[in-house]
Amino acid sequence: MHNFTPLSGLIGGALIGLASALLMLSAGRLAGVSGILGGLLTASSDRAWRIAFIAGLIVAALVGPLFGAPGAARLSSSNLALYAVAGLLVGFGSRMGNGCTSGHGVCGFARFSMRSITATLVFMGVAVVTVLIVRHGFGG
């Protein structure tokens, strides 16, 4: 295995769980990033908390390095078309399926929701097959 980092994974994961618990206990909202962002695009009146949560995500990458955490990832700019296609699929798909890795994955498993667990197994399975095809060709 390359770059396997279970400890920082557990610690970072615990923080993600803590943030999800905090949002529910304080705002009564589920920490699903696609739902929070998508809700900004519909004509809803509860925009302020959504914008605040998204601002928090972005500010994290700016203040993280001050406390020894890594900053934002540097993506390769060699394949912008790939990012465009992937972004479209992630946006459309997460709204159609009513959630992504945070809402269905983390929060759905934490709520023991069969609907969310099913969604997570589907998108994870499809993502594994996608990587298999892209990296190893159809033959594996």
């Binding site: 970072g12 994961g13 615990a14 923080l15 993600i16 769980g17 803590l18 943030a19 999800s20 905090l22 949002l23 304080s26 705002a27 920490a31 605040a52 949560f53 998204i54 601002a55 928090g56 995500l57 972005i58 500010v59 994290a60 990458a61 203040v63 993280g64 406390f67 955490a69 945070s102």
Partner: peptide
């Protein structure tokens, strides 16, 4: 919540 979530990521 967003800040802690982002730091976790």
């Amino acid at each position: 919540s967003g800040l802690i979530f982002g730091l976790g990521l």
